[in-house]
Nucleic acid binder design. Structure first.
Length: 151
DNA sequence: GCCAACGTTGGC
DNA sequence: GCCAACGTTGGC
């Protein structure tokens, strides 16, 4: 079992939206970055758990936890010309982008702000703090434990 | 809204 | 394959 962090803009899709799915799977789609894509496609597995991170909003930080319920499959939006995630270079035979399904696990009693994560010595090597722009990233067991304690 | 960091595109 | 120009992410 591995741990991940998934970024989302809460104005688009928040931890509350995920909670509102009442346990049904939510496709984590729209990932259009190769590094993130490779992690999704090659490493994220059913049963893994992920921190849900709220980005590009008033209160940035970690909002809760989701579990992976389906491993990588072709993101259908890449084939849909109506979608903003449409990719003319992708084809059904040769998909370029992938998504996974996640289910809601829990919402933290409070959002753990990015500023606090930055202050935590044990999190100094966290990918989130080292590499700004990666929307799917690995979290170590130690980091996971520490963040759950902060929540 | 600004701007730093970084990813992508495209000419050569 | 290099690199300049440009676009996007994302915190503040």
């Amino acid at each position: 079992m591995a741990y991940w962090l998934l970024k989302t803009e809460p104005d688009e899709f928040s931890i509350d939206d995920l909670a509102g799915r009442n346990g049904s799977p939510e496709p984590w789609n729209g990932i259009r970055n190769y590094q993130a894509r490779n992690i999704l496609r090659d490493q994220v597995s059913v049963g893994d758990e992920a921190l849900i991170y709220h980005s590009s909003c008033k209160q940035v930080g970690i909002a809760g936890i989701a579990a992976v319920s389906r491993a990588a499959y072709a993101d259908p939006d890449q084939f849909n010309p109506e979608s903003k995630y449409f990719d003319p270079k992708a084809s059904e035979n040769d998909p370029r982008w992938f998504c996974v399904d996640v289910v809601f696990k829990r919402k933290f009693p409070r959002l753990v702000p990015l500023a606090e994560l930055k202050r935590q010595a044990g999190l100094a090597n966290m990918v989130l703090l080292r590499q700004g722009r990666l929307s799917v990233q690995a979290v170590t067991a130690e980091e996971w434990k520490l963040i759950l304690q902060m929540a």
